[in-house]
Design a protein around this nucleic acid. Sequence first.
DNA 1: GTCTATATGCTGATAGAC
DNA 2: GTCTATCAGCATATAGAC
Lengths: 219, 219
Amino acid sequence: MRKTVDGRAKSVRGDILAAARELFAEKGYRDTTVREIARRAGANGAAVNYYFRSKDALYEAVFDEAFETFGRPLGDLVGSVRDQATWRAALEKWFDFMLGLFLLDDPRQALVRRLVAQERSSPTEFCRRIYDGVFVPVVDVFRALLRMALPDEPAESFQAQFATLLGMCTCFIHRDPPWDEIILCPAMEREAWVRTLRDQIVATIVARYSFRTSRVAPR
Amino acid sequence: MRKTVDGRAKSVRGDILAAARELFAEKGYRDTTVREIARRAGANGAAVNYYFRSKDALYEAVFDEAFETFGRPLGDLVGSVRDQATWRAALEKWFDFMLGLFLLDDPRQALVRRLVAQERSSPTEFCRRIYDGVFVPVVDVFRALLRMALPDEPAESFQAQFATLLGMCTCFIHRDPPWDEIILCPAMEREAWVRTLRDQIVATIVARYSFRTSRVAPR
DNA sequence: GTCTATATGCTGATAGAC
DNA sequence: GTCTATCAGCATATAGAC
C-alpha cells in the first residue's frame, strides 16, 4: 500500500514532512495535531513519532528546511550602492524581495510567511531562531540603506523612521481573511500588485530621503 | 470565603470576567483554559460555566466589553479639515490615537491590541465582528484623509498608497518579544516614543502629499 | 450560589503484533 | 517499517451534594 504504481517505495517520511509543512503553515504549531498530519500524509498515526522523535522535533525539521535558503536572493545589496540611482535601485530590489515573500503564494515562501506570522503573535521556543537567524539579517540590509540617507541622524529619531518605514511592507505578513480586504487589491494580478506596492513605497521614501553617503556607521 | 473584609458579597462573576480579560489578552483564546481563568479569579472551575454558558460565551463577553467604547475619542476628524494646517492636525490626531492604542499599556487598550493581534494570525468566529465593527470604521477615517490629498487617484494606485501608509502604524500591533527589539526604543519613555513615531509618520506623509480638497469621493 | 466529582472527548506518545 | 490498541493527561462541560 505504501508503494507507487511503478513499484518504488514511497517515502512515508517525506509525505509526513510535506503534510506537516502544509498544516503548520495553515494553522500554526499549536492548532495542528499529529493525527491530522498523519491523515493528510496517508500514513498511520504512529508513523509521525516513528520517523520524527516527537511533534516538537517534526516542527523543528519543517522549520529548518523552510528557512535554510531564506534571504539568499538578496546578495550584497548594500555593497552595490554608489549614488542616488543605485541607492534607489537597491531599495526597489529590497522591497521587491520582501513583498514577494509576503504576497506571492510560492509554496516555500508561503510557509515562511505563515510561520513568521504565527510566531509573531504566539511565539514558540523557535521564535528566537527565526528572529536572530533570518529576520534581523534581512532587515539590517534596509537599515543600512536608510542610514545612507541619514548618516548623522540621532539614534532615537533614526529608529523611529526605520521602524515606521519598515512597517510599510511588514504589514503584509498578516493577510488572512478578513484582514486581506483592507490591504490587498482583488482587481489586480498578484505580481502586478507587488510591483505597484513596491513603486509606491519607494516613491514615498524618495519623496523625503535621498542618498548621501555609502560610508555608514553600524547600528 | 467569597466575602470581602467589609462583608459585602464580592462579585465572583466580575472576578472571572477580569481574569478572563487578562488571560485572553496574554495568551489568546485557544491557549487559555477555563481552569486557569477560575484559578486566577480565585473561583471554582464550575463557576465559569455557571456564570457564563461556556468558554465561548465568556470570550464573547470579554470581547464586547473591550470594544464597546473603542474609537470614540476620534470624534468627527474628517469634518474638522479645511486646509493644509487642519489636514495635518487631523493626521497627527489619527496616528496619535492609533499609536497610543498599540504602544501605551493602558489595560483596556492593551486588551484591544492583544485581541486584534491574536485574531490577525488565528481568526476566531468573532474576527468579523472586530474587523467590520471596529477596525474598518477607524481605518476609513484615514482613508478619507488620504483621499483629500489624492482626490482623483485611480482606485488601484490609491489602494497601494493607502495600504502601505497604514502599515506605518499597524506594524506596532505585534510587539511581543523578541519582535519588539526591532520596532521599539528602550531608551525613551513610551509616551515620548509615541510622539516621535507620530511626528515621523506625519513628516513622511507631508513630504509627499498635501491637502487639495475636503470634498472627497467615497471608497 | 458554590462546591466536588465526574462524564466525555481529544491530545501526544508508546507497546507490541505482524 | 507499518500497523492496531492503548496509555496518561488535560480539555470543556455538567450533575448533584450542600
